[in-house]
């Protein structure tokens, strides 16, 4: 059986097959070709901490830093960037949040709210 494929291009439109991206494949194949996920931490000012800004895909650390620069610091959000591959981050299991976090709820004496602060100490 003959199949005729008709494609229509518009000026300035880049056809998928030459557009650099892979053609859509079967989902399993596609998953293997995805670049790894990276977490991005940005320090907004000297002296402040790096804060989690979001995540992105990149083939290697260099590309991850450049992508982070382009995606997350376009509006002067940062002076320093850290990236770490997401697979290296170990997280708590949400199912265990009861035993992990709830015991702290009724222990208000752990908050340092029972001290009298001198007036000279602001911003505590």
């Amino acid at each position: 059986m003959n199949t005729i494929l008709i494609r229509k291009f518009f000026y300035g439109d880049i056809p998928d097959e030459t557009g650099g991206g892979e053609l859509p494949q079967t989902p399993s194949k596609e998953a293997g070709k995805e670049w790894p996920l990276w977490e991005v931490l940005i320090r907004s000012k000297q002296g402040l901490d790096h804060k989690h800004a979001g995540s992105l895909h990149a083939a290697d650390a260099k590309m991850a830093i450049e992508n982070a620069r382009d995606v997350y610091t376009r509006r002067m959000e940062g002076v320093s960037i850290w990236v770490v591959e997401s697979k290296y981050i170990h997280a708590t299991n949400p199912d265990e949040s009861g035993e992990l976090f709830e015991p702290a709820e009724d222990k208000i004496y752990r908050h340092p709210t029972f001290y009298e602060l001198p007036d000279e100490v602001n911003k505590m």
């Binding site: 880049i14 650099g20 991206g21 670049w35 992105l56 895909h57 990149a58 450049e66 992508n67 382009d70």
Partner: peptide, 15 residues
């Protein structure tokens, strides 16, 4: 600019 919205992946589209 013709690449806008056509980049191979989102991050490179922005780059």
């Amino acid at each position: 600019g013709e690449w806008c919205g056509h980049g191979p992946v989102l991050e490179q589209d922005i780059a």
